[in-house]
Design a protein around this nucleic acid. Structure first.
Lengths: 287, 287
DNA sequence: TCGGATTACGTGCACCGTAATGATC
DNA sequence: GATCATTACGGTGCACGTAATCCGA
């Protein structure tokens, strides 16, 4: 068998043209390279170079061998990275979600069950979540629609309902409830990382009225400092996030209410089943 | 970079299940293998085995690594054989022909021009010859029809004409010429290695009348010992192979006369051009 | 007690570098 | 006298083997 180091040296010689240049690149002496190339030739039982006593050049067979060498080296490199990557993936649970709230709820539940593992989380749309699940990019996903794929195991997770927070002086502040159509024409503050809610807002409101903030801090500062409306959900309200000098009004459209589902591959149901039930229990406990 | 010997050892461990068995198979001590596997793990930066203090088993990552190892080893093996094979092909000229006579003529011409190379010859039908030329199985071929492929370079080589040799007592022995139809019903001796002539005989004569001899000696012995008809060609007659106590009669069908062409790839015209003209010259000189 | 893995230690070979030589421009 | 390959010789790292230890059936 031909060892990798010989192939590396061959590839270097092929790339640099001379033993000297290749030796420099490999931090090796010319004699060492010279010997290696000879060794390679004896091991393969062929001559790879035309030797002109002061110049070696790859012959046809040599060029052919270099192609193999490159392929083997590439595969070897790929192995080093691939195995490390695989190992890392073995030790991480990737969770994708269509919205931040249920993701925030689920993460600690997972971390609790898989103490020794890393948990990575990501927001994405339902299409990417589903394909990611199939490609093993995600092990668990949170969707806002029931998946129809028979290869997936899923479970109802929780509901979330959207409210609008208005200053008391706002024209709509007296209403028992409002619709997205009522809100049209009013500027509204919202964060960028709100998952599929962004699609709802874009669909139901005017694009130019959406004051999207990339950072959570900027958003909170603006909410504090301005009298602009912003959204909030029942789940956040339950946590006690209510400002006393504003009114919080439910949004009546069906769009403003959603149901989340947790899903994983059927084949991994056994592994993540405990997470599913623990997640449900956590929801009930936190009420 | 991971060296091949480590991958070989990994593959052996994967195959045999224990270090001990693998070590025996590799003619190596267990400690050596134990160290190698540890080394592999440190080099890859992952653990490949579950160590149960008295038993090691590949973990998921280990199994994944083994897949890579097998692929790399396979490629390495393939290189060893592939390069040697390529080298051999560099040093051989393969000639395919549809008939033995022109092949016998051409071979010495090639050998003369490519002294340091091996010449291998083979009989095959025109279809195989043409595909073999494209696949580099043959460098030169002798056809009995003009090739239409534009990627091929070809040249008229020589003609060959078939005669029938009959004992003087044969009913047809008085004829100036005969046709295949005249010969139908008479047994006839012929060699197996006559290329496309065999197709002609099968097409124009009855299968049960063809007494095909695999060895040239058997054929000659039978010709000597029997009074059965056999074929001969003008080219052989020119060489003086005529038996005094038999009559040699030309076969009048167009099928009994053929024209041979030498062909090679256009891209190798330069390399074999000299062979083409030398072959023609040799034909003229031998008249 | 045996099968199987690991640790400890000494050894030899294979690969390396330095120096010298050869060859070509 | 550059540039580049090869030969000769001496050094060393590292992969190996032997011996000893540990652990579980």
């Amino acid at each position: 068998m031909i060892e990798i180091y010989l192939l590396e040296q061959l590839a270097a010689v092929a790339e640099r043209g001379t033993l000297l240049k290749a030796a420099e690149a490999l931090y090796l002496s010319q004699p060492a390279l010279s010997r290696s190339m000879k060794k390679l030739e004896t091991q393969l039982g062929v001559s790879l170079f035309d030797r002109d006593n002061s110049k070696i050049t790859l012959n046809k067979t040599g060029q052919y061998a270099v192609e193999y060498a490159r392929r083997i080296l590439e595969l070897d490199r790929e192995m080093c990275e691939g195995v490390a990557d695989f190992d890392r993936r073995q030790r991480t649970v990737s969770v994708g979600a269509c919205a931040p709230f249920p993701l925030g709820e689920l993460t600690p539940v997972i971390q609790e069950r898989f103490v020794e593992m890393a948990v990575t989380t990501e927001l994405a749309d339902d299409g990417k979540l589903l394909s990611g699940l199939r490609n093993r990019v995600y092990q668990l996903v949170i969707l806002h629609e029931m998946p129809e794929d028979k290869a997936l195991f899923f479970q109802h997770y929780l509901e979330e309902k959207l409210f609008i927070v208005l200053p008391k002086a706002h024209p709509l502040s007296g209403r028992k409830s409002v619709s997205f159509d009522d809100l049209r024409g009013y500027k509204v503050l919202l964060g960028a990382a709100i998952g599929f809610w962004m699609d709802v807002c874009r669909r139901r409101l005017n694009a130019e009225d959406l004051l999207i903030q990339n950072s959570m801090e900027a958003l909170n500062d603006l909410i504090e400092a301005s009298s602009l409306p912003h959204f909030i959900s029942d789940r956040i309200i339950e946590r006690g996030f209510l400002s006393p000098d504003r009114v919080t009004i439910p949004i009546e459209d069906p769009d403003a209410k959603t149901t989340y589902y947790i899903a994983c591959l059927n084949s991994e149901k056994k592994k993540y089943g405990a997470v599913f039930s623990a997640a449900r229990e956590a929801v009930l406990r936190n009420r």
